[in-house]
C-alpha cells in the first residue's frame, strides 16, 4: 500500500520536475512563448491545458483496449479535439477575457505534442487512475513552467504584476515593483520570450551539470577512499605477517 502511494507520488512529481514537459522535454514551446506575457494569462493557459490533458488521458485510458491499433492516432486526435472544443466553448461563455487573450492558442492545444504524447506514451498503456495522475502532474508541471516564464516577462516587461484583467471575478489590482519608465518592453515581445526561455533552460542545465559534476566527484572520492582502505589493509596484512 505504502509502495503504491509512493509510486503515485513519483508519477505525479515527475511531470513537475524530472520530466517537466516544457523545461526538460522542450515540448509545447509555441504556446509557452505566446501566452506568457502576464502571469494571469499563463495561469489561464495552464488551467485549460491541464483540463484537456486530464480529460483526454482518462478517456484514452478507458478506451485503450477498445481502440484498434490502426486507428489509434486519429482516435486520440478526435478525443483531444473534442475536449479542446468543449473547453473553448466554456471559456468563451464564462471567461470571455481569457478567451480573447489566448485567442487561437486555445484551439492549438489540439496539436500540442504534450497532449498527444501523453495519450500515446502513457494513457494507452496504463490504468485510468495512473493516467489521471500522470496527466495531472504533467499539467501542473506545464502550468508552473508557464507561470515561471510569465513571472519574469511581466516583471521585466511591465515592471508590475496585475490581476483581475483576465479573471474578472477577482477585483483588479496592480502591484508596481519596478518604477515606471525603467521597465524593458522587449520582454513583452516574442524576442523577450525567447530570451527568458533560453535563460531558464541555461540555469536548469547549469544546475544539472553541477549536480552531475558533484556526483562524479563524490564517486571518484569514494573510489580513492576504497583504494586507500584496500592498500592500508594490504599493508597491515603484510606488517602482521
Amino acid at each position: 500500500m505504502a509502495k503504491e502511494k509512493g509510486q503515485t507520488k513519483l508519477n505525479f512529481l515527475k511531470g513537475i520536475a524530472n520530466e517537466n514537459p516544457l523545461f526538460v522535454s522542450i515540448l509545447g514551446t509555441c504556446p509557452a512563448l505566446a501566452t506568457t506575457k502576464s502571469v494571469e494569462a499563463a495561469i489561464g493557459m495552464g488551467l485549460l491545458f491541464t483540463i484537456v490533458l486530464v480529460c483526454s488521458n482518462i478517456l484514452v485510458s478507458l478506451l485503450r483496449k477498445l481502440i484498434p491499433e490502426e486507428i489509434r492516432t486519429p482516435a486520440y486526435i478526435v478525443i483531444i479535439a473534442t475536449f479542446v472544443t468543449i473547453v473553448k466553448m466554456f471559456t468563451n461563455a464564462f471567461l470571455p477575457e481569457l478567451y480573447s487573450t489566448l485567442g487561437v492558442f486555445i484551439s492549438l492545444i489540439v496539436v500540442n505534442c504534450i497532449v498527444l504524447g501523453r495519450a500515446e506514451a502513457y494513457a494507452s498503456k496504463n490504468k485510468v487512475f495512473d493516467s489521471f495522475i500522470d496527466a495531472l502532474g504533467m499539467g501542473v508541471g506545464y502550468t508552473l513552467a508557464l507561470i515561471l516564464m510569465a513571472f519574469f516577462r511581466e516583471l521585466l516587461g511591465t515592471g508590475a504584476f496585475s490581476f483581475g484583467k483576465i479573471f474578472t471575478f477577482i477585483p483588479y489590482f496592480k502591484l508596481q515593483i519596478i518604477p515606471v519608465g525603467y521597465e524593458i518592453s522587449l520582454f513583452q515581445n516574442p524576442a523577450g520570450a525567447f530570451i527568458v526561455f533560453a535563460l531558464i533552460l541555461a540555469v536548469i542545465q547549469f544546475i544539472k551539470n553541477r549536480k552531475a559534476e558533484l556526483k562524479a566527484y563524490n564517486e571518484r572520492q569514494e573510489k580513492i577512499r576504497k583504494a586507500q582502505e584496500a592498500k592500508l589493509a594490504a599493508q597491515n596484512k603484510e606488517g602482521g605477517n
Binding site: 478506451l63 477498445l66 481502440i67 484498434p68 486507428i71 486519429p74 482516435a75 478526435v78 478525443i79 479535439a81 473534442t82 472544443t85 468543449i86 466553448m89 466554456f90 468563451n92 461563455a93 464564462f94
Partner: peptide
C-alpha cells in the same frame, strides 16, 4: 464502427456543450 462511435460520442459531447454555452456566448 469504433471510429464512427468515437466520432458520434464526440459530436454528442460538443452538441451538449453548445447547448449549455450558446446563450451565454
Amino acid at each position: 464502427i469504433t471510429l464512427g462511435l468515437i466520432g458520434a460520442a464526440s459530436a454528442g459531447l460538443i452538441g451538449a456543450a453548445n447547448l449549455l454555452t450558446r446563450k451565454q456566448i
